[in-house]
Simulated assay, not measured.
Amino acid sequence: MFPIRDHNPSGRTPYVVYILMALNIGIFLLYWPIMSEPYRIAAFFQDWALIPAEVSMGSKPLGLVTSMFLHGGFLHLAGNMLFLWIFGDNLEDEMGHGGFLFFYLLSGIAAGLAQVISDPGSQIPTVGASGAIAGVMGGYLLLFPKARVDVLLIIIIFFKVFTVPAWVMLGLWFALQLFNGATSTAGAGGVAYWAHAGGFVAGLLLTLPLWQRRGGPQFWQKTDGKPPHPDAVYSRSTVPKVRRRR
């Protein structure tokens, strides 16, 4: 189950979201040619990824930032960019371009620190924008808990798109990160669950001042937890019927 779009249009062009997406995609394409060469890609990630053990010892702290713009494969990149595309524009709309960029980077750094704290001796390189984007999701949940999100559910060969409130989709996602983080062996599975959870909490906390300036609970009462403007309306696509020739 994953989101494919929300019904929450933004009031301004999300230039920072576009720039972040372009940077992530462009950087990935630059090192894509060496992805099939294990020694070269390992050396590259050793230099630029987040390595918890080294950060714990006070070396290579820059990895907390550079790792946010690296990905381990095309699907990893595509999934992160989808989430950024869906949820990022609305936060940039509320925070402004510069404020959103600062928020995004802080959320990513907080996510990296959460991963370091969860496994301080790990030598495994950690890459991906997931932690920063988890922060975006946390901020989105606080501001727009009842925004409508279209979710694609896939069960073997069954495909279904349905609409749920943002708090359902984002709450389930966060609960899964906590569950998987608590039940997974450190370093196993290749997913930094604690970075996701840490980024989500950081994003929520970083958005609190903005939410309070908007009126706090009164902001929810005024908007009913939904976007402060009309929902986007999408036309339903239908499969054309073909008449049988007699």
Rank of each mutant, 00 (worst) to 15 (best):
L101G: 03
L101Y: 04
F102C: 05
F102A: 13
F103Y: 15
Y104T: 07
Y104P: 05
L106Q: 04
L106D: 00
L106V: 15
L106C: 15
S107L: 01
S107W: 01
G108E: 04
G108I: 03
A110V: 05
A111N: 13
A111Q: 12
G112H: 12
A114S: 14
A114C: 10
Q115W: 14
V116D: 09
V116K: 12
I117L: 13
I117Y: 11
I117Q: 05
I117W: 09
S118P: 00
S118I: 01
D119Y: 03
P120R: 14
G121S: 11
G121T: 14
G121W: 15
S122C: 07
Q123Y: 08
I124Q: 14
V127M: 06
V127D: 00
G128P: 11
G128N: 07
A129L: 15
S130K: 02
G131D: 09
G131H: 08
A132W: 03
I133K: 08
I133W: 00
I133R: 05
A134F: 06
G135N: 06
V136A: 05
M137F: 03
G138A: 13
G138M: 04
G139L: 08
G139H: 08
Y140I: 05
Y140F: 15
Y140G: 10
Y140H: 13
L141W: 13
L141C: 08
L141K: 06
P145G: 03
P145V: 08
K146I: 00
A147G: 11
R148Q: 13
V149K: 14
V149T: 11
D150H: 09
D150V: 09
V151M: 12
L152T: 13
L152K: 14
L152I: 09
L152R: 13
L153Y: 11
I156T: 07
I157E: 04
F159T: 01
K160E: 02
V161G: 05
V161N: 07
V161E: 07
F162L: 08
F162Y: 07
T163A: 10
V164M: 11
